[in-house]
Design a protein around this nucleic acid. Sequence first.
DNA 1: TAGGAAACCGTACAGATGTGCTGTAATGGG
DNA 2: CCCATTACAGCACATCTGTACGGTTTCCTA
Lengths: 206, 206
Amino acid sequence: MPKIVDHERRREELTRIVWGIISRDGIEGATVRKVAEAAGVSVGGLRHYFDNQRGLLSFAAQAVARSVAKRITGHLDANLPGMQRAQLILEELLPLDDNRRVEVDVWLACLVRSHVDESLAELRDASWSGERHICRLAVASCHGLPLPDRVGQEFADTGLEGQATRLHLFVDGLTLQTTTFPQHFTPQAMRRIVHDELRLIEAQFK
Amino acid sequence: MPKIVDHERRREELTRIVWGIISRDGIEGATVRKVAEAAGVSVGGLRHYFDNQRGLLSFAAQAVARSVAKRITGHLDANLPGMQRAQLILEELLPLDDNRRVEVDVWLACLVRSHVDESLAELRDASWSGERHICRLAVASCHGLPLPDRVGQEFADTGLEGQATRLHLFVDGLTLQTTTFPQHFTPQAMRRIVHDELRLIEAQFK
DNA sequence: TAGGAAACCGTACAGATGTGCTGTAATGGG
DNA sequence: CCCATTACAGCACATCTGTACGGTTTCCTA
């Protein structure tokens, strides 16, 4: 048997490196050579973990989705007051610290690239459904309603569903602006904006 | 004297071609060779109008801002009811037809590239101020208030300024989602979403 | 009509990029 | 101890990229 390497674990490590490069140099800077150099391996060495560059980017994007989903399920398992849970859930989508900022950078870069790279299309659609689900969770939490338990499950009430749709649009705009203009938004300001929006949703309970 | 060519006009023509390529192939597809081929000129020919590729992209992005601004001042000059004017102003930022869709594609591509390309930073900030101004115009129109006449001029009333900030975030999210997931949004749906949002702003008049 | 300036062409060059292929070191079970 | 299997290195190759530069055509003006 050969040298023992945890394949999946190594892929995750390499993915972190890819994230850093995309965040700093954009997705066009994430060349196989730069990734290999940053990881301290050769270009050939990368091929043992990723078939090609598109596979590398695709995996990096999937890893963002997994990372966000993991944190959010953590908040769902915790027993929190509805408004606080909604707040924490939405905050996981925003660049509130360095970790989340990097993830948002990767998310946005891959989202835009998916406009012209079909290998990211499936992931893009999954990301949209996942975000919409998160927004429904937040809306339900706001109102103290039972949480939808599967992705894609709409509210029976069209008013609630409309609130989720609106929140989804708002959060995407907030994410885009806060990554693009970080100097305009302190973490406190981001949290305040989310909080105000949740209060608005709560007040519009029908 | 040489062959007569309207320099500025030719730059605008070439810019349209750049827009089309960015919209179809992404900003990474907008190479000098592709642009030259699409324009029916040689790579050397391009250099008479653009010093380098960054100048080309920068001009293309500026042209989007000019195009949007031109249409919006058109709506301001027309004498329209407040709500209708607000609606039309905001609609100019959305991919409601092929022309606007291309412009939005270019806007988003350049916005994301500005994260790593400092030659687009100034334009990015100007775009942000311009959008914020447009949102203030829309909010003022909603309430039948006098329009702010210069970019950067905040409302004295913090409630109104907050509405403009919120609208700005919302519109950015709507723009991002509608370009990324065009199949989810018919033009009517986009207009409806804007309309509902304006009604909400109108109702929150303080 | 001659000339000069602008518009444009085509090529060259250096560098970067994705990917394929071959070689090599290491490791742990038989 | 042996050696198959895995991890990785490193180079080759074709392609694409931005840019520089010299040459050529075109057409208005003096």
